[in-house]
Design a protein around this nucleic acid. Structure first.
Lengths: 220, 220
DNA sequence: TAGATTGTTAATCGATTAACAATC
DNA sequence: TAGATTGTTAATCGATTAACAATC
């Protein structure tokens, strides 16, 4: 019991921390030394009360009457997210989407390092993909052992997503960012975040239609 | 007051409807005629109670003792989401990610039609991109008018995302799927869904670290 | 000291869960 | 009728909001 067992932050809080972190990095880059909850909340689209509550769950990080120190807060959140050092991430699927993600330069300065790209198609093995080279899925165990990766991005066709996920979990992956439009089943202790583009667009379609309907009714 | 003003579904419900819809399409393709709340809930990772409550907010769609008719339910949800006919979507940004999205074939059978790709770089105008051709951002007003698009996918660099979003909103776009790692500010009446890959990975990193810490403590 | 702003408490809001009557 | 399963109510849970004492 050397360190306090902070643990167990509310899920919505966890999901907002990366957003705060991003805004803080922007502020730090601009040379800003301190920021108030009101200002940081405005920049991240949350209420000041939610922001203060979220931050206070990580400790007493601000100073009353003054605000929060930008750089220190940045580091505290970064550590809370487990980003004390870069996280190794493997990317599975070297199709159009996978290649685009492999070449994405936005991961590096947010603590994420795409350390390998794998594909089931043996013809792709050895091909360049972003800054690295495609390896065979047959080597998944070795790649995960060598890189120590605990996170994976899944950019494979829907019909193989579950079986690839199973392989990855067996090989030690503990978090999956899934771009395939299927609901993955994983053992407890493994997290999945799903990014389904059609789902997102359908949610937008609903809100847009809802608003249009309201207008129509109001106009009657 | 001809139709009941169902409107105003809870946000979490709206976000789950596309997931139900996807599972129902799979069931329909397999020739399944009816499904129970327990089975559909299992397939979509929600609790049966949440599922029934969500569906009942759209009307009395099931039959007690029997379950829900797959095809009819599919159509009801589809209509509720505003997908009675396909939604025209424009895609802005023809870089690596934009090109991958333009070529994505998964939109079509989920009611979404990428009807145009635009880019600010005049050198890209006329280049092939997925099934279509890149048009200049100068033509954004015309393209939106001609296509009737109300939704847009934003796959542009972070530093221009806000100004591009402003242009799109001015031109009539009412829903934005934003891949740039910035918090967009939009007028009320416009919806934004953000897909920030680093944020997603950071959330996974937290859960993975949290679990590892618990193991470590338990192992002491 | 006076003004500003955090950290935290209490009140409100909203969503999920449990349970079961209705009914196929 | 007996078994199954929905639709809905009441109870629980959890998150947000409002407000303000603490304190810089």
């Amino acid at each position: 019991m050397s360190t306090p067992t902070a643990s167990a932050l509310p899920r919505p809080t966890v999901a907002r921390l990366p957003v705060y972190l991003r805004a803080l990095t922007t502020l730090a880059a601009a040379g800003t030394l301190r920021v108030s909850s009101t200002e940081l909340a405005r920049r991240t689209g949350v209420s000041p009360a939610v922001l203060r509550r979220d931050l206070s769950s990580l400790g007493q990080l601000g100073r009353r009457g003054v605000g929060y120190p930008v750089t220190a807060l940045e580091q505290t959140i970064s550590r809370a997210l487990g980003l004390a050092e870069d996280q190794a991430v493997i990317l599975v699927g070297a199709g159009h989407l996978g290649s685009a993600l492999a070449g994405y330069t936005g991961f590096a300065d947010r603590g994420m390092r795409v350390c390998a790209v794998l594909d089931a198609d043996p013809r792709l093995a050895g091909a360049r993909c972003g800054p690295t080279v495609v390896q065979s899925m047959d080597d998944v165990e070795r790649v995960i052992t060598e890189t120590g990766a605990r996170l994976a991005i899944l950019a494979v066709p829907a019909d193989v997503a579950q079986s690839v996920a199973d392989q990855l979990v067996t090989a030690g992956i503990r978090g999956l960012l899934n771009f395939a439009p299927v609901d993955l089943e994983v053992p407890s202790g493994v997290s999945v975040r799903a990014v389904d583009l059609s789902t997102e667009l359908q949610i937008l379609a609903f809100h847009q239609a809802e608003l249009r309907d309201e207008d129509r009714r109001a106009g009657d």
